[in-house]
Amino acid sequence: MTSLPAQTPDRQLGLVIDLDICVGCHACAVNCKEWNSGGHSAPMTDWNAYGGETDSEGQDEGAWGVWFNRINAYEAGDGTASQTVYFPRSCLHCADAKCVTVCPTGASYKRSSDGIVLVDADLCIGCKLCSWACPYGAREYDATDKVMKKCTLCVDRIYNDNVPEAERIPACVSTCPVGARHYGDLGDPNSEISLLVAARGGYDLMPEMGYRPTNKYLPPRPRQVAEVVDLNPSPAANDGTTAGAGNNLLAWVDAMLSR
């Protein structure tokens, strides 16, 4: 079980995140929390829910809790040449998911039908080894339930007969206000989402780890700063060097325009 599916899963469902338009609004993160609070891995426990304290090192310990999707903000580069990039991260449902193979109990597993990586909470002993094995920080330990939890790719939504068909997509995808999140079968090179990845140069995070993540990231597109178009002063208009506005106005004296 804890071994990866012997054959490449029939499908590789996953997400594609467009860093070019993500505004870092946290909508996907909160909506994920909301859906999953009553979902497959419920609850998404929060600690210090309405309080806080200061730890021994003087760092604040405010509220914290289980989230399957988290947004960082980065600045890349220096000075005005730098760029701010928002960066959502959730489980990447890796093809070579070592979080699964290290699991001693078989609680972690990768589905052979669609590649989704899940945790069976009834089997999990809370050894946390899977979280050590995940390069992407995608696993979340519920210290009250004492089991590991993680993004389920909304497995209780995407196949849910009780949800209208058009809405059978992950909660985070359905809620993203800018449309920066895409969902589909990344195992099929001809799927819409795979074509998008190809067209936009979608990439893997830390390919050197060898986990072959399913989720892909679309890089920020080069910023459009136009080839400098020069405003050609119209022949009649003045260059503004002549004192007084009067001369400048000549351009429009003959304008014959009808209301």
């Binding site: 993160a29 988290r70 903000a73 600045e75 979280s131 920020p220």
Partner: peptide, 24 residues
């Protein structure tokens, strides 16, 4: 390499996902 943003320059964290430290 973790963010894949190296082509834009050195990468620095501007904001963490939550104010308090996460499990990870």
């Amino acid at each position: 390499s973790a963010t894949g943003l190296g082509h834009l320059g050195a990468v620095r964290v501007l904001e963490q996902p939550t104010t308090s430290a996460t499990y990870v």
